[in-house]
């Protein structure tokens, strides 16, 4: 009797083990992606295309800003963090503290930070220095940079945004003017500038629709360029940055497959399609 029970138990356990293993392979893989608002539309496109050819993979993409994405990566609530800036030393320290890794950085696209102005604005180009003076509030009137005699209205991102951080470090090189209105996304900046004849803002190239793009030049003597695949690849456009994906550990399984596809020529063509630029 005991032998029978043991046999039954062993059979049930074997069936259970086989079922668990089978279901674990059958169960759809879920990957969460969180972070940069600049990268949301690009990331959503990648997820959408990838899920079509990999129906067992469920990829959820949300924004919130690069800072929010990095925090989510550290607290374990996202698998991939999208960031339009590099992770800071203190953020890497937190990752080391909790997961004992430094995180894996994957450059996945290039972006030219674009200067948005209202379609009616008569200013066509600005130097990096002028942009710095405008966003620090030292140049307050459009006439100081060749425009109409009217106050400049500044629009920017919140400090959790990677674009905010990158623009501050690469262009503003100081504190943003207190009058700079912070908005919760690049689309909101574009909308604000679209409605405000005196507005100026910054953000990813892919969002620049229905507004005027102001060309940027390194200094007075340089030629002004607009962000394009050519000017970014050649290094002529002065406000160029990488867009990154960060993961806690070396990616494996479905996550590795997804990331490998993103940086493949097939995945990179969607970066170009959305309005960004390929990594290579």
């Amino acid at each position: 009797m005991k032998k029978m029970n043991l046999k039954k138990l062993a059979t049930i356990l074997s069936v259970l083990v086989v079922m668990i293993i089978t279901f674990s392979f059958m169960a759809p893989t879920r990957i969460t992606v969180k972070g940069s608002d600049t990268m949301v539309i690009l990331s959503q496109k990648w997820a959408e295309v990838y899920m079509k050819s990999n129906p067992n993979t469920n990829i959820q993409v949300t924004g919130g800003g690069s800072g929010t994405g990095v925090s989510a990566l550290i607290n374990g609530s996202t698998d991939i963090c999208n960031s339009s800036r590099k992770m800071s030393a203190s953020e890497i320290s937190k990752l080391k503290e909790r997961y004992n890794t430094m995180g894996v950085e994957i450059p996945c696209a290039k972006d030219g930070i674009t200067i948005y102005a209202n379609a009616a604005n008569k200013v066509h180009e600005l130097t990096i220095k002028q942009l710095s003076l405008i966003f620090t509030g030292k140049i307050k009137n459009w006439k100081e940079v060749g425009g109409a005699d009217a106050d400049i209205k500044l629009y920017g991102r919140e400090n959790s945004s990677g674009t905010y951080v990158y623009f501050k470090e690469a262009v503003v090189k100081g504190d943003y003017a207190a009058s700079c209105q912070t908005l919760p996304g690049t689309a909101a900046v574009v909308n604000a500038v679209k409605k405000d004849a005196l507005g100026i803002g910054y953000g990813g190239a892919a969002y620049a629709e229905g507004i005027k793009i102001i060309k940027v030049k390194k200094d007075d003597k340089s030629i002004a360029y607009a962000a394009s695949a050519e000017t970014i690849k050649s290094g002529q456009y002065p406000i160029t940055r990488y867009l990154y994906m960060y993961v806690r550990n070396r990616p494996t399984g479905e996550m590795k497959k997804f990331i490998d596809w993103i940086i493949s020529p097939d995945g990179q063509k969607y970066a170009t399609e959305i309005g960004y630029f390929p990594v290579r």
Partner: peptide, 12 residues
């Protein structure tokens, strides 16, 4: 010294 290794998950 602190050494961080990514071998089948984080290790230090």
């Amino acid at each position: 010294m602190q050494v961080y290794l990514d071998v089948l998950g984080g290790m230090s």
